[in-house]
Amino acid sequence: MAIFNLNINGKKQQVEVDPATPMLWVLRDHLQLVGTKYGCGIAQCGACTIHLEGQAMRSCQLPVSAVGEQAITTIEGLSEKGDHPVQKAWLEHDVPQCGYCQAGQIMTAAALLNSNPDPSEEEIETAMNGNICRCGTYLRIKAAVKTAAAS
């Protein structure tokens, strides 16, 4: 066990955990930030995507000991009022079905638009390819990313 001082959604958070603990479980079990989802545990589905210094990152494979002072953003901190352009676009296109993967999809999309504000169709497909949606909402996801890019 060790103490870690984390910077999550602009707030200092202290946790005492095994240094190997993935950020996913630090967020979910220790900080009750449960918007970040467990899907596979091996960085294959994208449900656990967060931002580390603005970059999309699979939190299931990110040990807390590797985070240091880098800023973490989770779905809860993407915007204060749930009005990030990507979130608004998601609502406009009424994307979700079951909703379980959508926080990860949104975080991946938001990171893409951070680094590439006007992505091509192919760039969107490539960036979003690591996020599985078992309900099959891919077309709406792509349309929402385009809408968010245009806003």
């Binding site: 930030l33 449960v34 918007g35 970040t36 989770t74 779905i75 809860e76 993407l78 749930g82 979130q87 998601w90 609502l91 009424d94 979700p96 909703g99 959508q102 926080a103 949104i106």
Partner: peptide, 9 residues
């Protein structure tokens, strides 16, 4: 439930 889903409730 849209708003709750996109904000990770």
């Amino acid at each position: 439930e849209g708003q709750n889903i996109v904000t990770g409730k």
